[in-house]
């Protein structure tokens, strides 16, 4: 666009720019074709970029830890909300409880995706991932505990027999007063 404007400004009707822009990725408008990797020319870069990379890895690790610890805040908030919601079954408490169950579950499902930006062969992501998993499981446990306190978990005998039909009887009898 900028170029187009400049061209228009000088009064030219059209121009073809033959300069090779493949080495200047910042200024490209067009996406790379699939499978094309721009990394190869950068590999044999100068040695001072190694330091830069280390810093980046550190930064990534730091970020990964931040992400891994983020459910903790969530957990605290959830706990507070649950405490606020009380122990009776109504719309609010059920909503809170189900969101408390849903959030960790969805987070657990997409754990790979969340840590993808920090993926680096230099960065050890296992620990952050484990912490993330543990915190989310904690959240899940909190949700289940809440569900239980609401009495919505089938942990009592009554939950399993409440729709049990009465047993058949072996003997049959009838009778009563005689007709008159």
């Amino acid at each position: 666009m900028d170029k187009g404007k400049a061209v228009m400004g000088t009064g030219r009707r059209w121009a073809v720019d033959f300069s090779d822009q493949s080495t200047v990725p910042s200024s490209r408008d067009i996406l790379d074709p699939p499978g094309f990797s721009r990394a190869s020319p950068e590999q044999d870069d100068s040695a001072n970029s190694r330091q830069k990379k280390d810093a980046e890895a550190n930064w990534k690790l730091q970020k990964a830890w931040e992400v891994a610890q983020s459910p903790f805040k969530n957990l605290m908030m959830m706990g507070f909300m649950m405490w606020m919601a009380g122990n009776t079954v109504h719309l609010f408490s059920i909503g809170i409880t189900f969101s408390a169950l849903w959030q960790p579950l969805s987070a657990l499902q997409s754990v790979g995706k969340i840590f993808e930006p920090f993926k680096d062969n230099k960065v050890e992501l296992l620990m952050p991932k484990l912490v993330f998993l543990a915190l989310n499981l904690g959240g899940l446990a909190l949700g289940i505990w809440k569900l239980n306190t609401l009495g919505l978990l089938p942990t009592h005998a009554s939950d399993w027999v409440s729709s049990l039909a009465p047993p058949q009887e072996v003997e049959h009898s009838g009778g009563g007063f005689a007709f008159h």
Binding site: V161, P166, E169, H172
Partner: peptide, 28 residues
């Protein structure tokens, strides 16, 4: 006696404290 064609849904009676009582449901 009970009506012979009466349908009983469950044999359990659940109290408020999750306590269970089993109904004595008999036609006899």
């Amino acid at each position: 006696t009970r009506k012979p064609n009466e349908v009983v849904h469950t044999q359990a009676k659940v109290n408020s404290d999750q306590d269970l009582l089993y109904k004595y449901v008999s036609r006899n």
